[in-house]
Simulated scan of single mutants.
Amino acid sequence: MAYFKFDPTLDDDRDTRQTLLVPLILQLVERGDADDAKPNVRLPLPSHARLRRVCERLIAEPASIDTLERWAEQIGASARTVARLFRQETGMSFGQWREQLRLAEAMSRLAIGRPVAQVAQDLGYADSRTFSVMFRRAFGTTPQQFAGK
């Protein structure tokens, strides 16, 4: 199973702090964290080329609300095939994988001090309350507590 390696040189408009922190956070996400008190996200990437393209596009635009059916259409496969391959290659459904991506991205953005409302908006949530509920469900802590505010 392969994992996404973030190349900070591809996105020059991000500030230096984020450029340095994002790869570190993604590396921690890959490995998981032995300390159960800290939030933990697993984000495996499929080795299947077409699925990999879907994942890379979602990583570039985590707020995307395109459905599995839409992604399947874009890569020339049936939604059933994509769903089956996603589970085989990542150990989770497409929806679960997308949520893990958003959680990883949320942790990254919160860690560099972005406001919760901005993170929620950037990740495609209707409002910060919806985002906070998802974050708390996943980690047992609020985004504000995670950010140390």
Rank of each mutant, 00 (worst) to 15 (best):
Q74P: 01
L103E: 02
A138G: 03
F6T: 09
A79T: 08
L85K: 09
F86N: 11
F86L: 10
R31C: 08
T81K: 14
A37K: 11
D15I: 05
P8I: 01
E61F: 11
T141S: 14
A37R: 13
R102T: 10
S132G: 04
T16G: 12
Y3V: 05
R70N: 07
A120Y: 02
W97R: 10
R114E: 12
L110A: 07
R50S: 15
T16F: 15
W71E: 13
D15P: 00
M1S: 08
E69P: 03
Q96H: 12
R50G: 08
L43S: 02
L103N: 01
P8L: 02
A72N: 04
P115I: 05
A117F: 01
L10H: 13
D15N: 05
Q144S: 12
D33G: 02
L45W: 09
D15Y: 03
A83Y: 09
K5I: 00
A111K: 08
A34R: 06
I65G: 15
R17L: 15
Q27P: 04
R14E: 14
R42V: 03
R42C: 10
E30I: 02
A72D: 03
R14M: 05
A63V: 01
A83C: 04
D36R: 13
L103M: 13
S128M: 03
Q18H: 13
L51C: 05
T90M: 10
S78I: 01
D36V: 04
S128V: 02
L43K: 05
T142R: 10
V29S: 12
R31F: 02
E69D: 06
P39D: 07
R50C: 04
V29W: 07
R57T: 06
A117I: 01
I75G: 08
G95N: 11
Q18K: 11
R53P: 01
T81L: 11
K38P: 01
L58P: 10
E30Q: 15
D7T: 00
Q144C: 02
L28E: 12
S93G: 14
I65P: 02
D11N: 15
A34V: 00
R42Y: 09
R53A: 15
P46M: 09
I59D: 06
Q18I: 02
P143A: 10
F135M: 06
G95V: 01
D36W: 05
M134E: 06
Q144P: 00
P44K: 13
E69T: 13
F86K: 08
T141Q: 15
L45I: 09
V119Q: 10
E105V: 08
R136T: 04
Q121V: 05
V54I: 13
K149N: 10
D13Q: 14
R109C: 10
L101F: 00
A117V: 04
G76N: 09
S78L: 03
S93V: 01
N40R: 12
V54E: 11
